[in-house]
Design a protein around this nucleic acid. Structure first.
Lengths: 212, 212
DNA sequence: CGTTTCTGTTATCATTTATCAACAGATTTT
DNA sequence: AAAATCTGTTGATAAATGATAACAGAAACG
């Protein structure tokens, strides 16, 4: 049985400097105006360390997505489940990505997605309220958030275009080219679902690709 | 032959008040802090009226998308073209929508998409430079831009999830429910392409749906 | 007006992909 | 160590969708 995230204690890091380094680096990679010392402290205090183990839920369908999570270490997947119980992967998430259902987090509506940990995962999480109270006045943070939204919109449109335009074989080839890191972290049936095909079809596609 | 947009003259509206009303209303619908009189003037002067006729290109594959366009009246489509010359519709755009390839506009890279007018169309356009120079200091504009990106990212993810999760029949049913206005503006083969299926398949799906 | 283009339907056949089932090696759990 | 689960493959068959072609009414065009 998977345990629910709400049963786990939140706690602030005992060593505030160590855990947040990758987040600070990440933010600064997205902005022209570097963070001041004060702002770095604000960020470190606003984000809270949370660890979840493999198979544990970060978000379950029907819940409001309370946290946005920056993944420090680990791997997660975001997916919907249809009438027949089949899972459809809409996102694969690893280090230096964000785990959040933006629709639910922003609109405070129940999510149609599940997010769970594929590997033991360490995240830095923040609620919408804490974000608004502590971070929305920091220019670099806003700049990053803007660019993230922009990049996300662009990436999702590309993926959509690939799905309506290309064959399963070409979609996999493109995916293997641009996201080879995922191939090593997730098994084939997860990749297949991400591409919108069955695991059997992907297995055959790969086999054919070898003989070319 | 389709004429290219760059051959057409740009001109500022002779009656600055009349043409920009829908844009001002649109902006204010997205923001909590209303525009000041001065800001309204800045907006009216920054956006330039452009009319294009049916079938004319607003953007061609290979070009950098120089303009972001707010559609005042008319209908457009955004699409890619594959090896075989088949068009794949990635977006259908009508009044109160934006016509722009965000990736190209933001990154200044050549676009992989075409955008053309399906009906005679009136737009208010702005270059990235003019946006940065004149509008980026207006809080309401930034608030709107943020929310637009947010909404766009959410909507595209929904469409992507539908594409990897649902049958063509269900995708069309959902589309007909949530976007009935498009059914009246665009012919079936355009809708089919938007859904990622052929026009023949859509024709059969619709016929089956009647007998249920 | 006649002609052309556009739109939508239907039929036939081909291709792609899904479904179901069985299996084996690897990994995890107990 | 044994049992259970996970992962990937393969075969047989079914279902969904695409490709091609032909056709007819509607709309646009010269």
């Amino acid at each position: 049985m998977q345990r629910d995230i709400k049963n786990l204690p939140l706690r602030r890091s005992l060593f505030p400097g160590s855990m947040h380094e990758s987040l600070i680096k990440y933010i600064e990679s997205y902005t022209t105006t570097p963070l001041t010392e004060k702002e770095i402290d604000v960020v470190k205090n606003a984000f809270v360390l949370k660890k979840i183990r493999k198979k544990q839920y970060f978000l379950q369908e029907g819940q409001v997505c309370k946290y946005a999570a920056f993944i420090v270490k680990g791997a997660m997947r975001q997916y919907s489940v249809d009438d027949k119980g089949t899972e459809h992967i809409v996102g694969l998430l690893i280090e230096n990505w964000w785990a959040v259902d933006r629709e639910s987090y922003v609109m405070l509506t129940p999510s149609v997605y599940n997010i769970d940990a594929w590997e033991d995962t360490e995240m830095l999480v923040i609620t919408k309220a804490d974000f608004l109270n502590h971070l929305s006045s920091i220019p670099a943070i806003n700049e990053m958030a803007r660019k993230l939204d922009e990049n996300y919109a662009i990436a999702t449109q590309k993926r959509l275009n690939a799905n309506i335009s290309f064959s399963a074989e070409k979609r996999f080839a493109d995916f293997a080219n641009s996201h080879s890191e995922f191939l090593q972290r997730f098994p084939q049936h997860i990749i297949a679902s991400y591409l919108g095909i069955t695991k059997e079809t992907l297995s055959r596609i790969r086999h054919q690709a070898v003989n070319k």
